[in-house]
Structure formats: structure tokens, C-alpha cells
């Protein structure tokens, strides 16, 4: 007797559940946990990472992220306003900037600005933090400009008209009426940009580092070289997760809240 469509679908679901659990069990059974733990998670090496991984490496990652984000949001707002301007050269400049810095990999931008410019001009970066943070913020500003522009454009046109009809100047209306409303829209995507920045700071170490400016990724890599064991990188990865997971959860919570509020 042929099965009905719905019965078939029901059995298919059972098969999917059982298959995925079976695969998981096989993986767990066949992995050599002892060897894996020995190469990637040795407890005495884990303990050796502390406290320096937090007090030095994670601190540097946070410094690079905060500098990059602060610069990125300031220039991002500027470029967003330029893209929305009625003055065409402003729009062209901002659009070109955004396309260039979104189109070139961060690694390449870091190398050009960090190494290429000093070689070409004889000028040297006065501070190793700025050498990493400024290229980072230039790239971040290109992405954030688009996020901010989308947020401003999502505010209904009537808001600007109402503000202008009350005698507010364009700048006053932007500051008092439009940007506060745009902020509500752009805080979740901007927090995502922040998470991306935390991870992107790991590229800065290609510029060469002193002991004082080592970030988390470089700290982990150097740890691998010293111990001939992958544990330091695993610990660095866990520290990244400790920073990014709360933020991604925060974004998820904010998005659920706005969804609930708009209902």
C-alpha cells in the first residue's frame, strides 16, 4: 500500500533526526581524543597563557577595536552625510571612497598604508597603535557609512519636512529629529560591525609588533612557536569568543525587541 504524502513526510523527518544523531555518535567515537587534547588543549599550557593573554594581548585587541570603531563611526557619519548631500562632488567623493575601501581587502589596505606609504614618502608612523588603527578605521568607515546612510534613509521623508516646516535648519533637523531615529535602526548593524572589527584587528599583526602591541591572534601564534603546541591559539580563539558572543547575543536581543515593538 502506498504511503500518503503526509505520512511520507513524517517518516522522512524521523530518518533525518536519526541520521544526524548517528553521524554525531560516529564522530565522537572515532576521534582520538587523547591525541587531540595533547596537541590542542594542554592544561599546563592553558594556565601559562594567563594572565598575559588578558592583561596584554586582549587589552591590545580592545584598544585597536575601540580606536578603529571610534574613527570608523566618525568618518562613517561624515561620508554618510556626504552621500546624502545635494552637492554632487561630495556624493561622488563619498561614493568613490566607499567603493574603494570596501573593494580592497583589509590586509592589502593595512600593508599599503602601514608599509607602502612610509617607504614611498619617508614618513613614519609616530605610534604603532595608530599604524594599525587608522587603516582599520578607514576601512570600517566605508562599511559604516553605508549602514548609517541606510538608517538615515529609513526615516520617513515627512520627518524632515515637518522639522523644516517648523523653522529648523537642515543641520538642526538632522541632529534633533533624524539622527536620533536613525540611531535606533542602525545600532544593531553597527554592533555587528563592532564584532567584525574585533576579529579584523587580528590582521594588524602583519605590520610587525613590539612586545607591547601584540594582539590576541599574534599572542596565540607566538605561543604556538614557543610551545610547539596549538593550545595557545585555541585559548586565543576562546578569548575572542568571550568578547564576540555577548555582543552577537545582544544584537539578537535588540532585533527581537524591535520586532516585538513594531508589532
Amino acid at each position: 500500500m502506498a504511503l500518503s504524502k503526509r505520512k511520507k513526510a513524517m517518516y522522512m523527518r524521523y530518518v533525518m533526526y536519526i541520521a544526524s544523531i548517528a553521524i554525531l555518535v560516529v564522530v565522537i567515537l572515532f576521534i582520538d581524543w587523547g591525541r587531540l587534547g595533547n596537541a590542542m588543549f594542554r592544561w599546563n599550557i592553558v594556565k601559562d597563557q594567563f594572565p598575559n593573554i588578558l592583561t596584554k594581548a586582549a587589552k591590545n585587541t580592545v584598544v585597536f577595536t575601540v580606536l578603529g570603531f571610534t574613527g570608523g563611526i566618525s568618518f562613517g557619519l561624515l561620508f554618510a552625510l556626504m552621500r546624502l548631500s545635494t552637492i554632487r562632488p561630495y556624493r561622488w567623493f563619498a561614493a568613490t571612497y566607499i567603493e574603494i575601501f570596501r573593494g580592497i581587502p583589509l590586509l592589502v589596505t593595512l600593508l599599503i598604508l602601514g608599509f607602502g606609504i612610509p617607504i614611498a614618502t619617508g614618513w613614519h608612523w609616530p605610534n604603532p597603535y595608530l599604524q594599525g588603527a587608522i587603516p582599520l578605521s578607514l576601512v570600517a568607515s566605508a562599511y559604516m557609512a553605508e549602514t548609517i546612510r541606510a538608517g538615515i534613509e529609513a526615516v520617513p521623508k515627512g520627518q524632515m519636512e515637518a522639522a523644516r516646516s517648523l523653522g529648523m535648519s537642515y543641520a538642526r533637523a538632522m541632529i534633533t529629529i533624524i539622527i536620533p531615529q536613525a540611531l535606533r535602526i542602525i545600532v544593531p548593524p553597527l554592533t555587528n560591525e563592532f564584532v567584525l572589527l574585533i576579529k579584523d584587528t587580528s590582521l594588524i599583526s602583519v605590520l610587525g609588533v613590539t612586545a607591547a602591541t601584540k594582539d590576541l591572534a599574534r599572542f596565540g601564534r607566538d605561543g604556538v612557536n614557543q610551545t610547539a603546541n596549538a593550545t595557545p591559539l585555541i585559548v586565543a580563539g576562546l578569548v575572542y569568543l568571550a568578547m564576540t558572543l555577548p555582543l552577537t547575543q545582544l544584537v539578537a536581543w535588540m532585533e527581537r525587541r524591535t520586532k516585538a515593538a513594531s508589532r
Partner: peptide, 19 residues
């Protein structure tokens, strides 16, 4: 901007500031 302070306007969509 100064002239508009003397001209009140009411819109079809109200356009109150929601925040």
C-alpha cells in the same frame, strides 16, 4: 527658516516625531 516659523503646516500623515 525664519519665514517658516510664521507659517504653520499640518500634514496628511501627521509626521509627529515618534521618539
Amino acid at each position: 527658516d525664519e519665514a517658516r516659523t510664521h507659517i504653520g503646516m499640518v500634514f496628511q500623515q501627521f509626521n509627529l516625531f515618534p521618539h
